[in-house]
Design a protein around this nucleic acid. Structure first.
Lengths: 183, 183
DNA sequence: ACCTGAACACCGTTCAAGT
DNA sequence: ACCTGAACACCGTTCAAGT
């Protein structure tokens, strides 16, 4: 049976999960799948696009629920992203790259945009808040993964993550009265 | 005259500034300097370390002044980093990598840590605020550079950057009364 | 339609040997 | 002390040719 697009993304996620981004090469992937490197290029245009597909897959399990309380939903979403990406070596780099290439690459990104929009008093504030949260989430994960790589302690990481999230959300709900349960 | 450490870093910054990270290879650098690739390894242990030196050089021109008003100083510092890194292709990636490898790689990082410490009501808040600001700064620059690469508009970038900075600082000065002019 | 084989133009790093 | 030459073990991508 012929190689499928799905199989390639599966194998890519697997290599990333087990060995990190440095080992996630097109050649390595081909070896893992028992084909020649060139075969991959019949199914995938290039490595960058493949990494975006990997991001979609990794973020696909993050639950997107709505409670009517945007701040609480943002908090849950941010924690969900962290939980999904943290166990994957270099996961934050891959997700950041995909977010940069395509800000609609995952429903998770879109949902975050919607939620900050409901909480902010203006469109510019909403955009700034969305960016602040995304940068906090991906930056925190990146720092934590790098600390792990360098064998530095990460005991307070989860609490620090929450504290940073609080700071960002405090500012949002302070500058504007929450319009909360309106959607 | 023999090759010097300085010359190598200079050439590296130059290649980065003109061609970006993808073209900043040890072999390309050697070619540019008229030596064999192996020659570089007598002066520099590896590429990662060289990139940290590049970051030091890039951030060296960011002015570190103190006014007695930490929030204003943080704002100025953040804008200084943005001004220094934005004109350099992939500059945010290189700086983020260096920050991850060594959070004391530049006096700029250290100064930011000090300033958030003065504004926060606790050590954990200080650490969270430092991280939030750094992630905002590097994340914003990265987004802006990527948008430029993809020929997307970046007209509101400076304002969005300031707005995000305000959000982070508003939260800091709201949760705690500024102890401000105490250092 | 799907893949192989082979090439093109590269990488970072090491190290004996030269001067 | 400082560098060359040459190697080792790789990269991403393309594409004629095969089935």
């Amino acid at each position: 049976m012929p190689l499928t697009h799905e199989e390639i993304v599966d194998a890519a996620v697997d290599v990333l999960r087990r060995h990190g981004l440095a080992d996630l090469t097109m050649r390595r992937l081909a070896r893992e799948l028992g084909v020649q490197p060139g075969a991959l290029y019949w199914h995938v245009p290039n490595k960058q696009t493949l990494l975006v597909r990997v991001t979609e897959r990794v973020l696909a399990d993050v639950p997107i629920r709505r409670s009517g309380h945007p701040a609480a939903d943002i908090r849950r979403l941010a924690k969900g992203i962290r939980a999904a990406v943290l166990p994957i070596p270099d996961g934050s780099d891959v997700v950041a790259l995909s977010y940069a290439l395509d800000a609609e690459a995952s429903p998770v990104f879109v949902q975050l945009r919607t939620l900050t929009g409901e909480l902010a008093d203006s469109a510019t504030t909403a955009a700034a808040a969305q960016a602040l949260v995304i940068h906090h989430v991906l930056g925190s994960i990146s720092d934590e993964q790098n600390r792990r790589l360098a064998d530095l302690p990460t005991h307070g990481a989860a609490a620090a993550f929450d504290r940073g999230l609080d700071l960002a959300l405090t500012a949002l709900t302070a500058t504007s009265l929450p319009r909360s349960v309106h959607g």
